[in-house]
Write a protein that binds this DNA or RNA. Structure first.
Length: 574
DNA sequence: GATTCTGAAA
DNA sequence: TTCCCTTCAGAATC
């Protein structure tokens, strides 16, 4: 009994003892079908939800495999009610399907009772073909409502498996090059990249062709997208988050495939090319002249016979693009992301409109294989001076966040950490421009913010890359800048409200494999005794779920110990 | 015709 | 819930 690390409770929560020897073994299994909710010291709380089960099911898990995992690791067994509900939920995935019969779309369900219940919903009525329902197992769906039906049925608790197939789209020969065009180095997909492409193409439990692949920063999402494009060989629309990323996609396509400059178009501010491979930003699509005006560029979805639409960073897909996506369900869709978690809670819409999760590579797996660096994460608790503390206490909740974030005592901490890691390229990342300006002055290091002109940014990035600048201070540009050079050490001096993505993104800055022991360092500085601790825990949740541990140390203890850290302080986060 | 600035939107 | 960054179109300027 004592050698089991989890407790399964009847309310669908699972408690994981993080110090248990088998904790690291069960963690990736658990997070494939449950979401991490809280991660205080020593005991993490996971929750099994319908959506987490359906994503697991679509990636190939079965009710039995899930129950087996729980049973194998549960200290006090698995409540029978939980087993029963897991089976019921997992079996719901695929219970309702959309199929094609000739030119008609049919909603099929082998359980007549369920079909009857579905046909009784008013919210679905307008999606059915007006023909009378004379089938016991099917309802005819309007061709144009394929997406809306899936979206609404998802809300009602019926995740639809869509096997109605896709239009092929315009053929475009795309082949992967055996060696890179630019450098001549040999090129091929890594094992997990190959597996991801295959999982997308074939699907997990159900027919593939659409869905989401979940991969860590640095896993080569672009390469996987390119792999899928080569597999299909059809006109492709690539949607991504910013113009640097547009350029990067273009470069990668030219470097790694047989496509030529003329095959690839950019649909952006200065050029509006629609080519067999077209790359655009989400902001382009969501642009409108006035607040209530029409979207000027959504027509791009219909401008060519696309065989594939790639949604890069699908967790950032904006609401209006969901709407457009609902209308193009006959086109294959590939979502790429490092996390299914959306800060706006629309994970269900990603599932029903882009597609379910087809494949996930855990961060720790890439780490173990050496594709990304091992990162040592430390949360440093920095006390506030009496003066700052007083100001903090007197302020409203709004200013408190800022005062804690800008705690001047962080300067000394940053200075000492820089001393410790002298010789290693280091990024200092923060949220407030005033704070970053002050740090820049005190530490004598250059700073890059949104105001920094592009030419200057490139100059600084280049100097940092060459090692001419050892420390670079960056604002939220770090969240977007794809071309920001990699570092070995990152010091986060302040962060926003609790964005898990932001934390993951920033950690990503030090993930590139390192020479030598392949180790990188990530420090999060938080003000002792303030709300910042709580925010920091929220931010860390995603990475903790991926198996990262934040060692939490007080600044005074750390200083007393000289340069060595204090591991017995214990891991903590979430 | 190309570049730089501005406000609006998200 | 903030602050910050990015991007678009259109106007102004060279």
């Amino acid at each position: 009994m004592k050698d089991k690390p989890i407790i399964v409770q009847s309310d669908f929560t699972v408690l994981l003892e993080t110090r248990h020897p088998k904790a690291d073994e069960v963690r990736p299994k658990l997070s494939s079908f449950a979401d991490l909710r809280k991660s205080p010291d020593g005991l993490h709380t996971y929750r099994i939800t319908p959506l987490s089960l359906w994503n697991a099911a679509s990636a190939g898990a079965t009710a039995e495999s899930i129950v087996e995992t729980l049973t194998a690791y549960a200290k006090f067994g698995v409540p029978a009610a939980v087993v029963k509900d897991i089976r019921a939920y997992v079996n719901r995935y695929g219970l309702v399907r959309i199929e094609r019969e000739g030119k008609q779309l049919m909603l099929r369900c082998d359980d007549p009772e369920v079909l009857k219940a579905i046909s009784a919903y008013d919210s679905l009525r307008s999606y059915w073909e007006p023909s009378p329902m004379d089938h016991r197992h099917t309802i005819a769906v309007r061709l144009t409502e394929r997406g809306s039906v899936k979206q609404e049925l998802m809300r009602l608790g019926y995740p639809v498996v869509d096997v109605a197939g896709y239009q092929d789209g315009e053929p475009v020969p795309i082949a992967l090059r055996p060696s890179l065009r630019a450098s001549g180095k040999p090129f091929g997909l890594r094992d997990y990249q190959e597996e991801a492409v295959e999982a997308f193409y074939r699907g997990g439990a159900a027919a593939g062709g659409s869905g989401v692949l979940v991969l860590p920063c640095g896993a080569g999402k672009t390469v996987i997208g390119i792999g899928a494009m080569a597999k299909l060989g059809r006109a492709t629309l690539i949607l991504t988050t910013n113009s640097t990323s547009v350029k990067q996609w273009r470069q990668e396509l030219l470097d790694k495939t047989t496509l030529t400059e003329d095959d690839i178009g950019e649909y952006g501010a200065d050029r509006k090319e629609v080519r067999p491979i077209t790359i655009a930003t989400y902001q382009m699509l969501t642009h409108r002249k006035s607040k209530d005006g029409e979207f000027s560029h959504m027509k791009l979805f219909g401008e060519r016979s696309w065989g594939l639409i790639v949604y890069d960073e699908v967790h950032l897909l904006p609401a209006p693009v969901f709407r457009a996506t609902a209308d193009i369900q006959a086109t294959r869709r590939l979502g790429l992301t490092a996390t299914l978690v959306r800060e706006d809670g629309r994970e269900e819409d990603v599932f029903s409109l882009v597609g379910p999760k087809r494949y996930e590579v855990p961060w720790k797996r890439l780490e173990a294989q050496g594709w990304i660096a091992t990162v040592d994460c430390t949360e440093v608790r920095v006390p506030m001076s009496g003066e700052t503390l007083e100001a903090y206490r007197k302020s409203g909740a709004r200013e408190q966040h800022r005062i804690a974030g800008e705690n001047p005592a962080k300067l000394d901490v940053a200075r000492q950490l820089l001393d410790e890691h002298r010789g290693n390229p280091t990024l200092v990342i923060g949220q407030y421009l005033d704070q970053l300006g002050a740090l820049s002055e005190e530490l004598g290091c250059p700073v890059v913010t949104g105001e920094t002109p592009n030419a200057e940014r490139e100059r600084l990035y280049a100097a940092f890359r060459k090692g001419e600048i050892g420390v670079l201070i960056v604002s939220k540009v770090a969240n977007f800048a794809v071309d920001l050079p990699d570092a070995a050490v990152a010091i986060q001096v302040s962060g926003s409200f609790g964005s898990r993505q932001e934390e993951a993104q920033r950690l990503g800055r030090v993930l590139r494999p390192k020479e030598g022991n392949n180790e990188a360092h990530f420090y999060a500085l938080v003000s002792e005794g303030t709300k910042e601790l709580e925010f920091a825990m929220k931010r860390q949740m995603f990475l903790v779920e991926q198996g990262y541990r934040y060692r939490s140390v007080g600044w005074d203890e750390r200083r007393a110990d000289g340069l060595s850290a204090t591991p017995e302080e214990g891991e903590q986060a979430g």
